[in-house]
Design a protein around this nucleic acid. Structure first.
Lengths: 214, 214
DNA sequence: TTCATGAAAAAATTTATATTCTTTCATCGT
DNA sequence: ACGATGAAAGAATATAAATTTTTTCATGAA
């Protein structure tokens, strides 16, 4: 799975005057990200982003259909970082799917917390995206679900997780259960005070259901 | 001060001119509830409530410290109805704690859904209360947690649920897991389309962890 | 005294207006 | 042509003034 920037340009506004031949999306997103980080994304105007790049605001619209598209792309990049780290855990060194499950659950919870409470002002964007159920958030949640399914399936294959539980339903239920410690809206509502112990307890309980009995 | 210290009236605004000797709280709450239902609680003024009762607005302030207190009391009554129904299920006819657990989880989820999506305009109030984490909501959540603990403890006592799982931690984890289908903020974010099957799947998985092995 | 109210201060909300931001597109320079 | 832009229309957001709502409290009636 290589980076496929050149291909996935469904975002390229085809109707616009002329889209750039060289792709300046990443430049733009870098600048936007920096500004969002510095002053909170709600205070940043597209003029600010353009100025930071020494171009006119109008020029941004050849790379992005509108401001919402920029916001979503920045969101996407932030969430992709979490996804990548999580996939790394899931495919990582640890061989035992049970252990991987534990690591994965905790890793995601802590990364989401960081995103919301320690990512400077980027949390505004993350929260807005979550509240509005923006497409990148939906995609992200799908990825998380895929991760869970992957680990459970592997656990079942290796005989350390119960194979008599239906994979899809079990995946869905596990994913639902983790929402309390994974979902930004929940983290925002309850804060992240006992997040670690809560996540650990939740994970332990779920594993009691998933693990094969001794 | 006289010998009158049998004051169970913790709610009585003590600092106010003279509090009523006969408690008109319930009357007031009835009127408020009716109005909230009819026109949405954000549109209702305390003057409206007072007028509905044929009294002056100022008079309400002898029974309630402020409008927020009225809103919270109405919220409290709505949530108490759910609590009561849930306790009824928990202590109800069904003898098997495992079955009670299933019924309880589903009952709460469906009642929360009704509150949010079918209670006319009362859902505004419920959502505002949940978003702001009002005290009645916190109390409600504590009650739900208590219900779960009760059922699990009973299941352990009867030997149908695993007694080797620590009661408090298991209760906490179970409660966390149910947030996805119980918590108004989640219901609001995701809608209630597949609520029943999601709740059923979640409950089944949790029971796999809680039940004793065959 | 005890209960209740009118009237007014304080707070919040709405309305109207002004300013800024987003987005388009005709036009410029290469 | 092609990438880029200035300028202006359309949206959205902020500011200010007016109105409504919440809350207090001194005073009156029972």
């Amino acid at each position: 799975m290589k980076s496929n920037h050149a291909i996935s340009e469904k975002h390229m506004a085809g109707k616009r005057p002329g889209r750039p031949s060289v792709d300046r999306r990443d430049e733009i997103l870098d600048a936007a990200e920096r500004l969002y980080e510095a002053m909170g994304f709600e205070k940043v105007t597209v003029t600010d982003v353009a100025r930071a790049l020494g171009m006119s605001p109008a020029n941004l619209y050849r790379s992005f259909a509108n401001r919402q598209a920029i916001d979503e792309a920045v969101t996407s990049r932030a969430l992709t970082a979490v996804e990548d780290a999580a996939w790394h855990v899931a495919r990582g060194a640890a061989a035992d799917p049970v252990h991987i499950f534990e690591l994965l659950c905790m890793d995601i919870a802590l990364k989401m917390r960081d995103l919301l409470f320690w990512s400077g002002r980027s949390s505004d964007l993350c929260l807005a995206a979550t509240r509005g159920n923006w497409p990148p958030v939906q995609a992200f949640m799908q990825t998380l679900r895929g991760l869970i399914r992957h680990v459970i399936a592997e656990g079942q294959r290796q005989g350390v997780m119960r194979a008599d539980l239906p994979l899809e339903e079990t995946t869905a239920a596990t994913f639902s259960a983790m929402a309390k410690v994974w979902h930004p809206v929940m983290l925002d509502t309850f804060g992240a005070a006992d997040l670690e112990s809560e996540t650990a307890a939740l994970t332990r309980l779920l594993l009691e259901a998933l693990k094969v009995k001794n």
